[in-house]
Design a protein around this nucleic acid. Sequence first.
DNA 1: TGTACATCAGTGAACGCGCGTTCACTGATGTAC
DNA 2: TGTACATCAGTGAACGCGCGTTCACTGATGTAC
Lengths: 204, 204
Amino acid sequence: MPERKSYHHGNLRQALVEATAALIEEQGPQAFTLTEAARRAGVSAAAPYRHFKGREDLLEEVARQGFIEFAGRLEAAFDSGRPRALTAFLRMGQAYLDFAADRPGYYMAMFESGISIAGNADLATASGRAQGVLVTAAEALAMRLPPAERPPSRMVANHIWALSHGVVELFGRGRPGSRSPVSSSEMLESGAIIYLRGLGLISE
Amino acid sequence: MPERKSYHHGNLRQALVEATAALIEEQGPQAFTLTEAARRAGVSAAAPYRHFKGREDLLEEVARQGFIEFAGRLEAAFDSGRPRALTAFLRMGQAYLDFAADRPGYYMAMFESGISIAGNADLATASGRAQGVLVTAAEALAMRLPPAERPPSRMVANHIWALSHGVVELFGRGRPGSRSPVSSSEMLESGAIIYLRGLGLISE
DNA sequence: TGTACATCAGTGAACGCGCGTTCACTGATGTAC
DNA sequence: TGTACATCAGTGAACGCGCGTTCACTGATGTAC
């Protein structure tokens, strides 16, 4: 990676973000160091300070970009509820797991790094967008029920988010049961189906 | 805290475990240092090496003790399913949240510190015991259904564990929605009730 | 097209720091007789 | 009850290390004329 001809890097800012995500994936969110990220980008330890205020600022940018891709993937998977809200909703759940699996460094920066989302406006916006996608999807689902039986869509979004996050953390990278006989994908799908049946969205 | 009359501490091993849990609670699981734990226990930085192989060993002991208390609390809350399996099960869910709230340092050591449970036999035993309590409770619940409708109890235990963990991580300490209008306790209870209704354990 | 110059994005050395760990040591304790 | 001595559980100094950050600097780029 540290192949560079000219004195100027050309795309250092983004290279640092990607190096950071890779480092977090390999060593965990707290273990990443600015120095090592700079080394991976083929640049001196002082160079990142031309693009970021410091370590924390870089970490927040990784999370911000993560939330944007995350929201985009969830939105694409839900596809405005086509062909049916239920199918689309379950597909979105799988997209949640796929994101955590494909972009573990970003996922960890977003949810396990201890950054303060509220303390960074751009980050809060990006995080809010992801939450919005989940709430919209829950709303579309609720519309399939008679008005009197409709659950609050924010609540449904939060339940599904919590279940998905729990599955990722506990079973996505082989935690307690270690050699769990069931994949995290099956675990989330079965859990979501039971939950949605409890809402009356799946008969029988 | 660092009040000591004699040259010997008397209970240093346990004092270090508790100092570590407090440090993790304050600064996160990766930020704790052996040196600081020793300082809090009122002892030199070299002293912990009389009781632990090193930093990792101490962290694993915190997690181990955490799992033991965790399992004990869940078991006590379930109380063999009295007076009814359903009530007892929901009570156990609240005990899960209470543990995470009362013992955040231990909870983080157990689930967020990146320790390898499989790599430490004592830790694996303690973790297995906690999982056993959840599975036993799920079994008792399943018994209330006709045999043909009984879900695998390990699956149910994992779903509930994942939901509880997700609630703790996302809403227990005010994460994405920050000022979430609903407490994590209500969030878990409503989610669990909908899920159990989906299993056919709650009619209507 | 050529040149002067401001600006940008790097460098590399240096700083102070706190960490984990090791080591020879020593004060306190407990036990054998 | 008293004493000798082995063992235990601390100390404190030292080590090498890598980190985040700052600083004066310099090479490359882009723009005005």
